[in-house]
Design a protein around this nucleic acid. Structure first.
Lengths: 371, 371
DNA sequence: CCAAGTTCGTTCAGATTCATTCAGAAAACC
DNA sequence: GGTTTTCTGAATGAATCTGAACGAACTTGG
């Protein structure tokens, strides 16, 4: 492993957890403690970390007092039901988070929230609605009962086309920041939100493909969520107008999300019939499933069909590795926490609406069309 | 094997793993280490890779050796203007700020920037363009020469109607955040900005007046700036459609910004003639000037004419005290600094676009119309 | 307060990697 | 055909990285 890679790994862990300990990195990276310490020294001299006994912390976390406090709770100290340890003598704020799913997309977002909160000694209380809108008001109340002073909400109770959240999310008795949702009209100027510019993410992918020479670019979107609609909208605007766009929605696809060999064949038929040379595939999970169910045997990748995955959880590990749009999930979490803390610390702080731009990771699944 | 093929292979591996080792590529491609190193040099000079000991890494989202920290001599503060605090032990970053005016609107913004930077030991370098677009590129360069590691720009070089900044603001060799401006299209997804939702601020004022029972709400806007156009647009959308709106622009008004008694009388004539019962006055400075030049002697305030000031620097101290829209100037500065620091500390951090909502301070200059 | 267990900083030696120079081979150009 | 340009590989000394070892410093729990 490269020294610089090691340092990147250390920094990424530090950013995730707010701190790193030498012993952990020794076992994790398989090098000696001296080496880790030297890495830390280097990072410290760049101002990226602060050394403390046992490891290092992110600078700027204003706790010169008890630096080790954030180090000692090893692993994810925070439990969904709130019965986790009090997270460093309760000096920081308690933030309640409501997400529809604890896995996949929202996992990274929650990671970002945790990483931002950890160095401040804040506590995270998590609720998962499992996409059941009717349970969410109660879950939000539970969060408040569990001591949450501010709420970060990604409610399933939202218009699927516009991502506008249900009204109750805007009238809770605590500062609220919506995640990947907007507030309904009477409250739009009063409730903050942080969202990904998924439209631009899809456009980014389309433009990359167009630059390579593709003209007919199909879209597959997963599920019936605001994200899927935003991606679809961005794609629709970015593909050359005039050409009939080919959009395949998981919600219309019998059998989905189980990709059988037969499904994949049918999908490929549709793509070829529409003369598509590229596919933007919402959720890299589905792109991976496509590959695993024989996509590469039916068409040459990327020669006959270029594939861009939307989302970048597993795309890197596919074969061929998938070019992917990377929604800045971790940063959505981070900025939401910062906003919530601002609202908490300064009661009159103004509402803010933040859009974060996705990036594109170009890998091996896209090339110029061969035809 | 062609050299170009080799380099493609290297890039592909780099993109897959985030890094490549010289030794690996030697065995994998069957050429000598010198050759690989030369390939790396070539790719580095194209900006595609960063060399590190043992190999190379993807630029961005990485921690290159000793970038700015060691290069910028932490010397005495170079102030672009006037007095300067000693800038606290030089541990923090240096932020360059370019504003068109150091007074009035931007004063509070700069205050917000300074207040956010101060506890971090950061240094602020300020440049003022005095609304001369042609001087701004040089001023920005000066800021960089003075050691600025990131830039916050509110350039006068911007489309007055849309607030889209000139292109050069997006191609500077340092993380850039635009203040109250947007980035032009090819760069919109790559350059962050922070702006006030002036449209919503104007709408807020209009709605307040409508709630009081006003139907004909006039607008005065000051100057020929993006802010004025945003306010005008928000006002235009919010006033009842169908009614002919009365918009008076300072840019069309002879003599402005000097309010003589005669000007005020003419303005009142126009308002009364249009049967306006309320006035949204962009810049509380002008609202104050109106009052001081005899407005209250010509119409009963707020009975015959309700006045809402846009901006809240002096509105509170007028008599009667003015209801005012408060643009969150200080917070614009604060969030811009936070964004710049994020970009500085984490080179791969995604672009963000932040809109902050103004608030409304209801005071004595608005009431239900008496008519 | 002490004692045990960690963690820290430093030095030294071995291994790897780096930049550079020089020379040979292949391709391009006249 | 001859010359120039470009690319490649060997060789060299210098620079860098890594791990072991040791005494000092720190943390923790009585």
């Amino acid at each position: 492993m490269l020294a610089a890679e090691r340092r990147t790994a250390i920094m990424s862990q530090a950013r995730r957890d707010g701190a790193v300990r030498v012993a952990d990195m020794v076992t994790q990276l398989g090098v000696s403690d001296v080496t880790i310490r030297r890495d830390l020294d280097a990072l410290v001299s760049q101002g990226l970390l602060l050394k403390v006994h046992g490891g290092a912390m992110l600078p700027g976390s204003r706790t010169p007092e008890e630096p080790t406090a954030a180090l000692t709770p090893r692993g994810p100290a925070v439990r969904a039901d709130g019965r986790g340890q009090p997270a460093s003598e309760g000096s920081g704020p308690t933030i309640g988070v409501l997400v529809p799913k604890s896995s996949y997309y929202f996992k990274s977002m929650v990671d970002g929230i945790r990483a931002t909160l950890a160095p401040l000694g804040g506590r995270l209380v998590l609720a998962v609605s499992d996409y059941a809108p009717e349970r969410e008001p109660d879950l939000a109340k539970n969060l408040l009962d569990a001591g949450a002073e501010a709420l970060l909400l990604a409610p399933a109770a939202a218009d699927r086309h516009t991502g506008v959240a249900a009204e109750w999310t805007c009238t809770l008795p605590a500062p609220t920041v919506l995640l990947e949702r907007r507030a309904p009209q009477p409250h739009a100027a009063a409730v903050s939100w942080v969202r990904t510019a998924h439209e631009n993410g899809a456009a980014l992918a389309v433009r990359h493909l167009q630059d390579l020479g593709h003209e007919r670019i199909a879209l597959f979107t997963r599920g019936d969520t605001p994200t899927a609609y935003s991606v679809e909208q961005g794609w629709r605007v970015a593909v050359a107008p005039g050409l009939e766009p080919l959009c395949i929605s998981g919600r219309d696809l019998a059998g989905w999300p189980r990709w059988e060999r037969e499904d994949t064949r049918r999908l490929v038929d549709r793509l070829l019939h529409a003369q598509a040379t590229a596919l933007l595939c919402h959720s890299d999970e589905d792109a991976l499933a496509l590959l695993q169910s024989g996509l590469a045997e039916l068409v040459a990748l990327p020669g006959e069909l270029s594939v861009v995955a939307y989302d970048d959880e597993f795309a890197e590990f596919a074969s061929p590795s998938l070019t992917a749009v990377c929604p800045p999930k971790r940063h959505v979490g981070r900025l939401a926490v910062q906003s919530a803390l601002d609202l908490l610390n300064e009661p009159g702080a103004p509402t803010r609406h933040i859009e974060i731009e996705p990036t594109l990771a170009v890998r091996d699944s896209t090339s110029a069309p061969t035809r």
